[in-house]
Design a protein around this nucleic acid. Structure first.
Length: 922
RNA sequence: AGGGCCUUAGCUCAGUUGGUUAGAGCACCUGCAUGACAUGCAGGGGGUCGGCGGUUCGAGUCCGCCAGGCCCUACCA
């Protein structure tokens, strides 16, 4: 074995073997356990969020697979309608063509070609993370089976009246030329202006003043509204306005939606271009005047001089023309929230179109109930409120998209505007008895990608066929996802699955935090703070990192800034840390919080942890290979105190890890393992074992017992750790397993250690605690007195009880070795106490005689500090116990505890004070 | 505008139903080539738990107010 752990040498080798041997597939077992991966986009590259999420799922899957469950981790990707179409369109752009040049069929072919070639990138990266997905069952949302499920669901919901077609205002992306759902619109505050326009009354006398942030919409105005009780305008209600620039008359109407306090109290109403105005228009029977084309250019409904202008050009022209007419009252700076498309980033227009909708309100009721009654549980529970809040006020879901890539809507139109929903044109003709003379044309639109994702838990298992997989693995056990898609995906899955299968899609939803950079900033390409998980695994040079962060940018002007900050943050690039260290870091950060700040320092510590494990294994193997390790259980074995203690500790650790995983607390699980392996097993047990293994006088039974303990505890630790650190544990286990009496081709199919309470040895724990206390007392003196670690000491003990004497006599070999002592003697109570540095272990006094070693002043400082601490503490205790209310009201056990503590502290204080005055006296 | 979350050591975070002297990692200081490991070993320093008030024998933990930070939903033209 190398002296340091070299992850690169082993990771891909083991992954290849696991995958080739089919270990990731379900292995049978009574209890099934399944996780459906949140399908990443085919266009995607692995980012830190994926890495984190997959690390968690893989730990759960490996843990339950080892625990004997019939385990399925369903692999797959989704087709990401808009994103994928954009990627391929951009490629075509490079060749100087657009999708219309190609036509729909050819364009979709191009996308498939692209998908075959590049769509697998992310699944390759997932393999680097060690994710044990069942690749043999990999699915894609556009696969024939899944497409069939999508079509089936659409037709069924349509026939049940849960899908309908309607003309509504939608969120329209004028660049992508498609409707998008409410959730895909991001509104943020931006600085803009508020224009105040005078609208002359039709009578020719006087005017009203309206305010608007979008002047161009006035071309579509259909009314001016005032509050019905607004005295200022009461006499104008029912009169008309002559709409400037348009030569139309529009009414003045009254509606209590209007806020009298805001602006002038008069609102221009544009029903075709504003959601609130649309509602008001419906209330008042106003017409809808649409003034825009698909690309937000003014259409032919508008006065001729504005036609063909982009919305912003039109805005400037309208303002200029109004000013020229003397109708521009004023322009004020105004901060407003601007809706932008989350993909394109352009301002979204409310736009009147025909679209398909899912009646979400009906489907929400059972979906709410399923969470209320506990059929589905969120972890942390807190997220249920987020879910409820949205579900109780849910809006109908616009599911049609004006794209070419996706599941085409199975609806056909005749030339009279009638439409028919069915499996295909032939079926539609038959079902509706349409003769051959009727010309049918299929709906051009496709379905929202989330529509197919909503079916993911069961469409991947073969539904609508009644497959064995469906019976075995559905409902899935747990969904692991981020809070950002509770609405997009989780809620819609719950609604769809409950309605279609009459069962929940999953029993638990584990919501994890979102990974941010070390400053708490969201990682994004435009901020240039993205870290690619594979770069943490393999490492990356500075130049390459700068290049990676600054190439292919949407906003190239930011490149210089990004380069600068990258060079500052990673002056020598990123080192290689390996997958196990990265994964362990993810787990250590996986607490209940919402944000996960990823600090590079954390991963370095965990790489060191890997190295620690590696070297502990080296030590164990050096001492156990080709030696008698009591593997067979036949030969007589003598277990030392240290052996019994570490066997006990590993059981406690197993219990802690099991509890933590059951609660999805991977931070606690990882911490328990780190603490046990480093601070107990390595720091203490391995050191303790040396005093047996290196002692020529030790019996063969004792050596056998120590070797057996070394190897068995290591082997258990490896299995405990394997779900989190799959590679290093496998590599080491291959050598350790057999020595520990285990057989099998891989650790990943070994049973997960079940905590065994009978092996918890309270007595051994206490004895070792005593031993540590004594050793630490001596080390403290050594450290503070600057006595070189190599210098052997002789030590006197005083004032101990029978237990102390007993423990000393059985453990003196440990003490000699770990505290570097050559001589330990008891001092009688009446014996003269020599000048010495003092430490306490309970009532036991540990004295290191000064004899030229100890600096008098330093010892005075040290003792004074200890005494100060004790005095503080005693004052607090005395106050507490002197308080009658405390003694009366607190539970007796608590009071007794405090009293015992006070006694012990008093005793310790006295002892130390005596020692201090003794030293001062010389 | 409504709702929610967060604030603990220099940094990143744990802290179960209120009950030892509030813990860890990293960073820091001191010493050390000791036969697994310098990606290491040993020792050490560092916190009035955001502020104020309340409940309680007892509050990092429960309640109220304030300050700062973040998020979600809705959106006033």
């Amino acid at each position: 074995m190398d002296k340091t752990f070299q992850p690169a040498n082993i990771e891909t080798r083991w992954y290849q073997e696991w995958e080739d041997k089919g270990y990731f597939a379900p292995q049978g077992g009574e209890q099934s356990y399944s996780i459906m991966i949140p399908p990443p986009n085919v266009t995607g590259n692995l980012h830190m969020g994926h890495g984190f999420q997959e690390a968690i799922m893989d730990a759960l899957i490996r843990y339950h697979r080892m625990s004997g469950c019939n385990t399925l981790w369903q692999a797959g990707t989704d087709h990401a309608g808009i994103a994928t179409q954009m990627v391929v369109e951009r490629q075509l752009e490079g060749q100087g063509i657009n999708r219309y040049d190609l036509g729909r069929e050819k364009f979709v072919e191009k996308i498939w070609e692209w998908k075959e070639k590049s769509g697998g990138a992310i699944t390759q990266q997932m393999r680097r993370l060690g994710a044990s997905l069942d690749w043999s069952r990999e699915r894609f949302t556009m696969d024939p089976g899944l497409s069939k499920a999508v079509q089936h669901v659409f037709i069924r919901l349509y026939r049940e009246g849960l899908i309908y077609r309607g003309q509504r205002l939608v969120n329209w992306d004028p660049v992508l030329h498609t409707a998008i759902s409410d959730l895909e619109v991001i509104s943020e505050e931006e600085r803009g202006h508020m224009w105040h326009f005078k609208y002359p009354l039709a009578s020719g006398e006087g005017h009203l003043t309206v305010a608007t942030t979008r002047p161009e919409t006035m071309l579509g105005d259909c009314a001016v509204a005032v509050h019905p009780e607004d005295k200022r305008y009461a006499n104008l209600i029912g009169l008309a306005i002559t709409l400037p620039l348009c030569d139309r008359e529009i009414p003045i109407i009254a509606d209590d939606y209007v806020d009298r306090e805001f602006g002038t109290g008069c609102v221009k109403i544009t029903p075709a271009h504003d959601f609130n105005d649309y509602e008001m228009g419906r209330r008042h029977g106003l017409p809808l005047i649409n003034i825009l084309n698909d690309d937000a250019v003014i259409n032919d409904t508008a006065p001729i001089s504005y036609r063909g202008l982009d919305r912003l050009e039109a805005r400037a022209r309208v303002v200029a023309d109004m000013e020229a007419l003397g109708l521009l009252d004023k322009v004020a700076d105004h901060t407003l929230s601007v809706p932008r498309g989350d993909r394109s980033g352009v301002v979204i227009e409310p736009y009147l179109t025909d679209q398909w909708y899912v009646d979400a309100k009906k489907m929400a009721t059972p979906a709410i109930a399923a969470v209320e009654n506990g059929d589905i549980q969120f972890v942390p529970k807190q997220w249920e409120n987020t879910y409820f809040a949205w579900m109780r006020d849910i809006q109908d879901w616009c599911i049609s998209r004006q794209l070419w890539w996706g599941h085409r809507i199975p609806a056909w139109y005749d030339t009279d505007g009638n439409f028919y929903v069915g499996e295909n044109e032939e079926a539609v003709r038959q079902e509706n008895t349409l003769g051959d003379t009727v010309i049918l044309r299929q709906d051009e639109d496709v379905l929202d990608t989330w529509f197919s994702s909503a079916l993911w838990t069961f469409s991947t298992l073969g539904w609508p066929e009644e497959t064995e997989e469906l019976a075995t693995f559905h409902p899935s056990t747990v969904l692991v996802t981020g809070f950002d898609i509770i609405f997009f995906w989780v809620a819609r899955m719950i609604m769809m699955t409950l309605h279609l299968l009459e069962e929940v899609p999953f029993h638990t939803v584990y919501i994890h935090g979102l990974v941010r950079d070390s400053d708490g900033q969201k990682m994004s390409k435009s901020k240039g703070n993205v870290i690619d998980p594979t770069d943490l695994i393999d490492g990356i040079g500075l130049e390459e990192l700068v290049l990676k962060r600054t190439s292919g940018m949407m906003q190239p002007q930011l490149a210089a800034k990004i380069e600068k900050s990258t060079r500052r943050q990673f002056p020598s690039g990123i080192e290689s840390y390996g997958t196990d260290a990265l994964r362990f870091t993810y787990y250590s950060l996986a607490s209940t919080g919402r944000d996960i700040k990823f600090d590079i320092g954390r991963i370095e510590g965990h790489r060191n942890f890997c190295n620690k494990i590696w070297n502990a294994a080296r030590y164990v193997l050096m001492n156990c290979e080709k030696e008698d390790c009591g593997t067979s259980n036949k030969a007589a074995v003598e277990l030392s105190l240290a052996d019994r203690w570490i066997r006990s500790k590993v059981q406690e650790t197993a219990a802690e890890v099991t509890r933590a995983v059951a609660n999805y607390r991977f931070d606690l699980a990882s911490q328990a393992l780190y603490e046990f392996i480093w601070n107990e097993y390595c720091d203490w047990y391995l050191e303790l074992s040396k005093s047996v293994l290196w002692d020529d006088g030790a019996s063969p039974e004792a050596k056998r017992g120590t070797r057996q303990t070394l190897i068995r505890v290591l082997e258990i630790s490896l299995r405990l750790l394997h779900p989190m650190m799959p590679f290093i544990t496998e590599e080491i286990w291959q050598s350790v397993g057999a020595l520990a009496g285990k057989s099998g081709p891989t650790i990943m199919l070994q049973p997960y250690p079940e905590p065994n309470e009978h092996e918890i040895d309270v007595r051994a724990n206490k004895d070792i605690e005593w031993l540590k206390m004594v050793i630490e007392g001596i080390r403290n003196i050594r450290g503070e007195m600057s006595i070189p670690p190599g210098k052997e000491l002789s030590v006197l003990l005083r004032n101990g009880d029978e237990n102390d004497r007993q423990r000393l006599s059985t453990n003196s070999q440990y003490l000699r070795k770990l505290a570097k002592i050559n001589k330990i003697d008891w001092l009688g109570v009446d014996d003269a106490v020599p000048l010495a540095a003092t430490s306490l272990a309970g009532e036991l006094e540990i004295l290191v005689p000064m004899a030229g070693l100890i600096d008098k002043e330093a010892e005075i400082v040290r003792l004074s500090r200890e005494i100060g601490k004790l005095e503080n503490d005693l004052t607090r205790l005395q106050g507490k116990l002197g308080n009658a209310a405390f003694v009366d009201k607190a539970p007796a056990a608590v009071v007794a505890k405090e009293q015992n503590k006070m006694q012990a502290q008093q005793q310790a204080l006295e002892t130390l004070q005596q020692r201090l005055s003794r030293i001062r006296d010389i």
